[in-house]
Amino acid sequence: MERSSIIERVLRAVLLTLIVIFFLFPIVWILLMSFQTNEQILRIPPSLSFVPTLENYKALISGHLLTSAGSLDIAFMRNLGNSVLLSTCAVVLALILGVPAAYAFARFKFWLSEDIAFTLLSFRFAPPLLVLLPLSLYFQDLGLVDTYVGLIWVYQLIALPLILWIVRGYFEDISPDIENAYRIAGHSWLRTFFKIAVPLAGPGIAAAGLLSFIFCWNNFVFALVLASADKQPVTVGALAFVTASGIQYGQVAAAIVLSVTPTLLLALYAQRWLVEGLSLGAVKG
């Protein structure tokens, strides 16, 4: 009995380690690459021993890329700033629009409500490229091509359905009686929404916000088509590392590390809001 449980434990530890190595290997490899020069990365056979260099990061932050073919200006920090601006604005806008809409879909059954909710979800099914061609034509007419406003608007295709559907589920999980009790206590429905519904759906709103932030951050194709260099986020900006003299692997790796960091920090910070079970104990089941 005792022996088999030890074997079990060891086996479990080994398997878990294997899985962690399998999933973390690319990230660790990229982290290591970001501290190497292009020559070190490309040497054959590859080796794990190298003298770490901060050249890649320096080049990215200063905006001057030195290649064997000469020096090149890149706008990586500007791209990073664009990413932060676009994703944050898109998510904030989607929250402002999506949370009340999710509440309406959760609480009220109005004419065509299910159809409208489904149509909004279906934005996620459509391949972006299918939407992009007509969209870029319309945007040209409207003068929205290459503007932050236009991009933030298009990002709603990513963020809004996600927030709507995740938050709706959380609102539906709140017992309507809790809201009814607050109404009967003499509070208006607007107050009830802000004081009862939103705080109780808090973890869901945080989760949906974080998730849609990550999706917006990782978006590539909308910004590629609809924005020029000075409005582009990091995902598109990374293309600049494919230079005439070859791909700058070291800088690409450093850029990835830098661009992953904000989302990682946000996820770590938001973790505390994702605690479930807030509504435990309110209602006798």
């Binding site: 009686d177 009790a181 109404r183 206590a185 509070h187 435990l280 309110a282 209602v283």
Partner: peptide, 19 residues
């Protein structure tokens, strides 16, 4: 509306505000 009726009500499932 419920908030204008001046009624006190206790629910079977208590419906306390958990937060």
């Amino acid at each position: 509306p419920p908030d204008k009726r001046g009624i006190g009500m206790a629910f079977q499932n208590f419906a306390l505000f958990p937060h």
